[in-house]
């Protein structure tokens, strides 16, 4: 059986880009789930300070689920700090676009759908798979 995904939650502290009710809802669901998880105040701030903790968060062999924002932004926040995420086993759940219920369900679902963009990807048609 595949490993349970490791969970990382970004609280997007210093801007209101993730709706308050979505991040509060997802955090609440994670807290109720009994699952182990990592929560960080603001991945952007960590990337800005090139926080060595990003390497720890990106390391490991298990699949990873990250509740944050757009996969492309998350990929390069880590990548720009020499802490690349493993594209083959990372799924980013976008709290800017999903409801609290949908984002929480996606985070707690044990299957992982890797969705980091690949090299130079451009969505050809609106509504197509966005990576």
């Amino acid at each position: 059986m595949a490993d349970k995904p490791r969970i990382l939650f970004c609280h997007c502290n210093y801007a209101k880009v993730v709706p308050e009710e979505v991040k509060a809802g997802v955090l609440k669901s994670l807290c109720k789930s009994g699952q182990a998880f990592e929560a960080v105040a603001d991945l952007c701030e960590m990337a800005a300070r090139r926080d060595p903790a990003l390497k720890r968060l990106a390391a490991g062999e298990e699949p990873v689920k990250i509740a944050a924002c757009y996969p492309r932004a998350v990929k390069w926040l880590f990548g720009g700090c020499q802490a690349p995420l493993n594209a083959a086993h990372t799924e980013v759940v976008n709290m800017r676009e999903l409801s609290a219920v949908d984002a929480a369900a996606a985070m707690l679902d044990e299957s992982v759908t890797p969705n980091l963009p690949e090299d130079g990807s451009v969505a050809a048609v609106e509504g197509e798979k966005k990576i």
Partner: peptide, 18 residues
């Protein structure tokens, strides 16, 4: 989190390595 810390909640399943 509002104060800027990174928190590991121990529970079922793996967390990031130390």
């Amino acid at each position: 989190l509002e104060k800027g810390y990174a928190v590991t909640c121990a529970g079922e399943g793996a967390v990031a390595p130390a």
